[in-house]
């Protein structure tokens, strides 16, 4: 690895924001299970220390579903080890992260086919069949 790794800099810093975030997710899950609406958390809205986002990811773990949406660049959607908790990473065409969300829901909206797109698809299929 590069010589940068030999510089002894500690990044194990805690803002104390990780725990409350995990509790917020727990409450959101309970609300969802109780028939209420889902919750979306913007990871950029919280001050997090270096390494804390990774800690959140590690705590949430990896679940059964992984999906990639290819629209205006890739979007990675992953269910965490806690069913109903999804990690969504929007990237642009350059593969740079533009936004990250934790969504507490049965299925992320972005995975559903959208009515407008279905209409456009019908048009396309019909014109395909006509030719």
């Amino acid at each position: 690895m590069s010589s940068l790794d030999t510089i002894p800099v500690t990044t194990e810093v805690a803002t104390g924001n990780v725990e409350p975030l995990l509790h917020e997710i727990r409450h959101a899950l309970k609300r969802l299970a109780g028939g209420e609406q889902g919750t979306t958390i913007d990871l950029k809205s919280l001050p997090l220390a270096p390494g804390e986002e990774e800690r959140i990811e590690a705590t949430l773990g990896t679940g059964e579903v992984r999906a990639e949406v290819d629209a205006l660049g890739p979007t990675l959607i992953r269910e965490t080890s806690y069913p109903g908790v999804w990690l969504i990473t929007h990237k642009n065409a350059d593969n740079a992260v533009v936004a990250r969300f934790i969504e507490v829901t049965y299925i992320p909206e972005l995975l559903r086919s959208q009515p407008e797109d279905i209409d456009a698809g019908i048009d396309r299929l019909e014109s395909e069949l006509r030719t």
Partner: peptide, 23 residues
């Protein structure tokens, strides 16, 4: 040729950009 999905993604990123809540 941007799909509705792409547009929703654009809106999510834009809302995040404007520091608006995801709701």
């Amino acid at each position: 040729g941007v799909s509705r999905r792409g547009f929703l993604k654009f809106c999510s990123a834009t809302a995040s950009l404007m520091a608006l809540p995801p709701s």
